[in-house]
């Protein structure tokens, strides 16, 4: 039951991006092209921060897959 709820939540949340948004034309992307809007602005910094959290907390992941394992947790 709990897992079914989680899967439904995930599915419902996944549908959010498909609805209620404005179509953005290529020439309207000035702000989106700004480096401060990049999710990958500082990949090394993000990885190092995630590694600290991974080493100290029971939950991890969510932002992508890959990168390999380590013995810190």
């Amino acid at each position: 039951m709990r897992m079914r709820f989680i899967l439904l939540l995930a599915l419902a949340s996944g549908c959010i991006p498909m609805t209620g948004c404005q179509h953005v034309k290529p020439w309207q992307r000035g702000a989106l092209a700004d480096p401060i809007m990049s999710a990958d602005l500082d990949p090394v910094g993000t990885q190092q921060a995630e590694h600290v959290f991974f080493s100290r907390e029971a939950a991890s992941g969510g932002r992508g897959v890959g990168g390999g394992g380590c013995g810190c947790n």
């Binding site: 990049s38 999710a39 990958d40 990949p43 993000t46 990885q47 995630e50 590694h51 991974f54 991890s60 992941g61 969510g62 932002r63 992508g64 897959v65 890959g66 990168g67 390999g68 394992g69 380590c70 947790n73």
Partner: peptide, 8 residues
């Protein structure tokens, strides 16, 4: 475990 960032 390092996790690569989501491709945006």
């Amino acid at each position: 475990m390092n996790r690569a960032g989501t491709q945006a």
